[in-house]
Design a protein around this nucleic acid. Structure first.
Lengths: 120, 120
DNA sequence: TTTTCACCGTTCAACAATTGAACAAAGTTT
DNA sequence: AAACTTTGTTCAATTGTTGAACGGTGAAAA
């Protein structure tokens, strides 16, 4: 599955470092090689990336994943959309944490209550 | 899979409302019936919950999922652990959002830059 | 009484997502 | 020439999840 999270992360990494291998990309993203391969193909398919050959420092043939102009445009759209989602997540998390805080206080109060009862 | 998230949520809901059905619990948690069933069995297996029969308002036989004393103890442990994880998530999200903000600014700067070039 | 209906927990075949070992290709090293 | 390294690709296997279907049980309707 190719989510905005990986669209964003992959385009960002490749923009800064187009000659990264799929294996290193997988490590950086903490996902499997197979999934990286799937995501890259999808991004190429959609015209956001282009794979081209180049000679690396050891004069070895390797791929280079370059953002197309459409890729650059889309990256900003995806980034904005992803940021919006993250902000919503953030607000939700704030509420959840507040709720959890109240729950753990309640637990403490319960313990206290039981201690009181126990003391009778 | 039974994660802390669902351990916490299920124990919390059942403590307040032990006579809820697995279907309603599934709706409340936005997960499937099968998964709820799996989670409940796991919690019962671990001794945190106990299923007992009771007669509901329509005098119909139904289950009641009660927290055992071990379940009450564990709930506070799980809540604390889950809260801690949420706080970490929160901090990470803050950093991510900051990074995203910078990225989208960079994009704006790039657009501006290109606009400048275009104007030449 | 018998039938129908509604709701319960349980099961499990089917689906979806992900993994990573295995492979072929290409260049380098021994 | 053979062995080794690093690349992208493939796909069988694993994992996680779903929800339709089933049998059980009591209430309501026929």
């Amino acid at each position: 599955m190719l989510t905005d999270e990986y669209r964003y992360k992959i385009l960002k990494i490749l923009e800064a470092n187009p000659e990264i291998s799929q294996r290193d990309l997988a490590k950086k993203l903490n996902i499997s090689l197979g999934r990286v391969n799937f995501c890259l193909k999808a991004l190429i398919e959609k015209g956001l990336l282009k794979a081209s050959n180049f000679r690396n420092s050891q004069n070895k043939l390797a791929y280079m994943y370059l953002l197309t102009s459409q890729g650059l445009e889309e990256k900003s759209v995806i980034t904005a959309r992803f940021l919006k989602a993250k902000l919503q997540e953030y607000a939700k998390l704030q509420a959840e944490i507040e709720e959890l805080r109240q729950d753990s206080h309640q637990v403490l109060n319960n313990s206290f209550h039981q201690a009181e009862i126990h003391a009778l």
